[in-house]
Write a protein that binds this DNA or RNA. Structure first.
Length: 575
RNA sequence: GGGCCUGUAGCUCAAUUGGUUAGAGCAGAGCGCUCAUAACGCUUUGGUUGGGGGUUCGAGUCCCUCCGGGCCUACCA
């Protein structure tokens, strides 16, 4: 038994996330958390909403709400959707929490004490109409290079030239279209992460077996050009963690907040504190997960995220934690493994919130139970390259894997038993060579499944699980209890007794992928023994002869062609 | 422009890191079964591994080059 700390990248607050966001971090993290718990490990699974930054303020303004109200409401919405998808967070926190305010300020002060904070004066574009400073990407204008009229302040998407906002001709606010822009001088704090470059480089090198995607992105940032650059960690915004606070080692920072990417990862820690608070536990309970000197030395920490999040998790967040321990007084737990994902595309293009293109979490749950989505998304997770959602593929995979291979197996076994023996595990007969072969095959298959699950090989795990389901159909075909019943009912009884236990076994091992269906199987079997199979023969004897069960409803109804066609049209984004 | 990833059967993906005849699932074809959600099982068709060149006893894997797809490039998060 180990202690495993799992965090999923924080979903941003400004709207409902689409399936691509889900499969890139929260869903695989949940798969791993559920599996780790099922294997008997002590798990702390943390997620939260990422609530600061310009987009949150703009989304709130659009919704006509104060930003705090907007975030509180969206947090509830996202939390409800997370529950709908069966995401088993130990705590779903908020980066705007008091805990995160305090911890972010504390860590910033520590970085200041370490000499890793620098005050920098820079010029930023201020919009009078919007009443705010505008990030480069929120300024639009004509590209001086190619004449494209909707170039953004950081880069022209037409000719890909890198730009400064001041390069733009006829600059305007992308939020309001206002042209009363002004360049103002403003002071900000920079994290001097360049000073930690070699430390970070060695730390990355010392990690074993990280995905190429993770290390290559980190290495790029460490060594590209002049190497790792210092980074501004404050912004001129209202909504966020105040930079000026009591005991701050700097002055004159009133009215500024920390940059969202500084406080967001810190929320992993703060959310664990929120967890303790919610349960009335003392601080020591969360600190034993995060402080090496307070019990976290045996914790294994795994992070899940999309590739766009990798630089912050491999560089700036570690720099924050390393810097905060400059004098050895605060050894924070650092990540042990970063599982990163590529993007999921939608039917030949990208998911698009603005165009209404693709399937979003709320829409998905309105169409089908979460297990359908969990299964398809996980079995097609974009681990090695971007992958693609198509309705045709979704229909085919789900119908075949869930309805035919697994659902129908449950159905044929329970219904056969009911018609021949009643809704009770039949007694009599004994297991022979074919049953032993099944046990051997299952043992081998389970070992492989466990290995790939341990290694967080998501697609491969789905394949292995499915292969285990198939073994059940193969066994039934060969054993043919419907034939045996005619000549030797006792043998048929033994075969069905095994098959009913097999179904329970499948419910247990499939639970990380399809928790609701697993729970329905277990309820129908009137069994609450979820113990992970350690010995296959024993696991297939959990339901004794005489145990009463009931035939469940169809586990997975098939997706019809009519439904598929309708959904294709509904989500094409052309309306 | 620079960097990284990627291209394998009609489709979605593997290939133990250079090692025998490139494998699975789906789709297609044939056979079997009749317990089951017209489900299941068995057999089977299908490949110049994007093109070309090179290194090697041996290349899907390494190198060069060309073509295609994608991502990142530090103030969206």
């Amino acid at each position: 038994m180990a202690r495993i700390l799992i965090t999923s990248a924080l979903p941003y607050i400004n709207g409902i996330k689409h399936l691509g966001n889900l499969v890139g971090s929260q869903l695989p993290a949940d798969l791993y958390a559920r599996y780790a718990r099922a294997r008997g490990h002590e798990v702390m699974f943390i997620c939260a909403t990422d609530e600061h930054g310009t987009p949150a303020e703009i989304a709130a303004a659009k919704a006509g709400q104060p930003v705090a109200e907007y975030c509180a409401a969206m947090h509830e919405v996202q939390g409800e959707l997370a529950r709908g998808f069966g995401l088993s967070f130990d705590h779903f926190g908020r980066s705007s929490s008091a805990r995160n305010h305090a911890l972010t300020q504390h860590l910033a002060a520590r970085l200041g004490a370490a000499g890793l904070i620098e005050e920098v004066s820079e010029k930023q574009v201020y919009s009078h109409t919007d009443g705010r400073f505008l990030p480069d990407r929120y300024i639009e204008g004509t590209c001086p290079n190619c004449g494209y009229e909707r170039a953004r302040g950081d880069q022209c998407e037409e000719c890909t030239k890198q730009l400064d906002p001041t390069d733009l001709i006829n600059p305007r606010s992308a939020i309001s279209g206002a042209t009363d822009l002004e360049v103002r001088e403003t002071r900000h704090l920079y994290l001097r992460q360049s000073k930690l470059r070699d430390t970070l480089d060695q730390w990355i090198d010392s990690q074993k077996g990280w995905p190429v995607l993770t290390t290559s992105i980190a290495k790029k940032w460490l060594h590209d050009g002049d190497g790792l650059q210092d980074r501004g960690i404050t912004r001129d915004l209202d909504w966020g963690v105040p930079v000026q606070f009591e005991g701050a080692p700097w002055g004159g920072m009133d009215g500024k907040v920390f940059y969202v990417w500084f406080d967001a990862p810190i929320e992993y820690i703060a959310a664990t504190a929120e967890w303790a608070d919610a349960l009335g536990k003392p601080d020591s309970e969360w600190r034993r997960w995060w402080r090496m000197d307070e019990g976290a030395e045996d914790v294994r920490y795994v992070q899940f995220m999309g590739k766009d999040n990798v630089p912050f998790h491999t560089l700036s967040f570690p720099a924050t934690l390393i810097g905060a321990n400059f004098d050895g007084a605060e050894p924070w737990k650092m990540v042990d493994y970063i599982k990163s994902f590529n993007y999921l595309n939608y039917d030949g293009g990208q998911f698009s919130t603005s165009l209404g293109r693709g399937v979003f979490m709320d829409q998905a749950l309105a169409l089908l139970p979460s297990d359908y989505w969990r299964w398809w998304l996980l079995s097609h997770a974009p681990e090695n390259s971007d992958s693609e959602f198509t309705w045709e593929n979704f229909q085919a995979s789900v119908n075949k894997d869930l309805a035919d291979v697994l659902g129908n197996l449950v159905s044929r076994v329970t219904k056969f038993c009911r018609s021949k023996f009643g809704e009770m595990v039949p007694e009599g007969g004994s297991y022979g060579a074919r049953e032993q072969q099944l046990i051997d095959d299952l043992t081998r298959g389970l070992t492989s499944y466990q290995n790939v699950m341990d290694g967080m090989m998501v697609r491969r795990s789905a394949q292995d699980l499915r292969a285990l389901w198939v073994l059940g159909n193969e066994y039934l075909q060969e054993a043919a209890p419907w034939s045996a019943f005619k000549t030797d009912p006792e043998q048929a009884a033994a075969q069905i007794r095994l098959a009913l236990n097999l179904i329970r076994f499948y419910a247990v091992i499939s639970q990380p992928f399809i928790p609701d269906a697993s729970a329905r199987i277990m309820a129908a079997l009137r069994c609450d023994d979820w113990s992970w199979p350690e010995d296959m023969a024993q696991a297939l004897g959990v339901l004794p002869a005489g145990h009463v069960f009931e035939v469940p409803d169809v586990l997975f109804a098939k997706i019809t062609d009519e439904q598929r066609i309708e959904w294709e049209a509904q989500f094409s984004g052309k309306n």
